[in-house]
Write a protein that binds this DNA or RNA. Sequence first.
DNA 1: GGGGAGAGATGCCGC
DNA 2: GCGGCATTTCTCCCC
Lengths: 243, 243
Amino acid sequence: MQDFVNWFRSWVNSGCLLVFAANCEVRYSGRAESYLPKGDRLVMIKPDNSVHVHQPSGNMPVNHMREGAQQVIEEVDGCWVVRSSHAVNKEELLIQLHKVYFFQEQLLDDGKKVVVAGTEADMAEMIYDHPEIIEAGFTPLSREEHTKYGFIDVFGFDGDNNLVVIECKRQTADLHAVTQLRRYVEKIKQSKGLDKVRGIIASPEISANAKKMLEDWGFGWRRIKPPKFLEKYDKSQQRLDYY
Amino acid sequence: MQDFVNWFRSWVNSGCLLVFAANCEVRYSGRAESYLPKGDRLVMIKPDNSVHVHQPSGNMPVNHMREGAQQVIEEVDGCWVVRSSHAVNKEELLIQLHKVYFFQEQLLDDGKKVVVAGTEADMAEMIYDHPEIIEAGFTPLSREEHTKYGFIDVFGFDGDNNLVVIECKRQTADLHAVTQLRRYVEKIKQSKGLDKVRGIIASPEISANAKKMLEDWGFGWRRIKPPKFLEKYDKSQQRLDYY
DNA sequence: GGGGAGAGATGCCGC
DNA sequence: GCGGCATTTCTCCCC
């Protein structure tokens, strides 16, 4: 343990990523309060001073501090504690150490950003490029006009010159999506002083309840799948190739 | 590298957590498509076979596979690749390794769950225990009856025997909270054939727009702060104490 | 630069 | 397995 304490103190602010496994208790106070009883966890502290406590299962860290925290190790009542605090966010994380299994540090050089396709914005883009997938005669507004309406995904006119608001969802549209669309339609009606504004949800799927509420409100739905520009699926090999 | 490959193969399905740092490229295909160019990252694979790729900064993993994936290491075009695939979810993650800096495995024993205070459920609990914080004469329904109505936070009668639906929000209530409350009230009105059902939002704050919409719909608001049982803030010391 | 408000994404829980 | 909701969120826009 003393090895770990000395090493921890020389590591602080070294710019290295730190990772260690330990038997510990964890306490958090900030936006919520939590306590995690004694058990084995993996702790990672990044060069940006974010802290991540992981249990052996589960997708999310059981506790974490965001970047900009300050870390110290100190003895409290005969027990070593890693104290991570974030004055601005009024948050504090305490990791009470009972046994440290291993520890390791590493300098990581990485400035690259991930490139993603298949988002909601890609769906809107696709509808702009191929408005006929909504319906014959549908004409989106120019992108310049569109930006004035901010949060609406796609905005245009149908063949009868009715305004149409389209809300895109990457996956199954739910009740929330319908109430959202309804708010937008009512907002546009009001600001334009219009009587009729159509609302359409574009998504690969829609839940039964959402479909019902949509129809109750006189809105429509189009089955549209988000584009996956990077994907090249080779069925014969049952694997994925890129570029 | 060959050490790592051999070690990786003996580690697979050992029940240990695995962590390594490497210079790598990462490709993902599944719910979306992504590509991350060459750089240094930390990779963690848990005993539940979830995979987490972390860059040296950022709160979230840049890529991850959820529990139940299958991991193999294989040589592709002269380069070693960790392939993680999830047949059910039709997801695949490829980590192309250029250099491995360190690797470590550890058996972690942990069955404990985190205890959180200050959630929406805690607020509902508090209202059950102290119904007078809503208003004099308010009587919540028993928890058993309450479960019949599903996801409504608190449900009861006021002094005039009107039904009251209460929606709790941990922080500032927004437009979404109001539309949610409205859905619940309308649902109850319909299923009970009632003319008058009151709706109340309980939250520490409420946005101006939400307040307005709330009043337009004849609903009410009570300023209620989520309980933080674990917190004891010692102002004189400007630090936190627990228990 | 800090705070507020709205929208988005993802995990989790219950049916 | 799916639907619905919560969240230790994120981001942008405003001041």
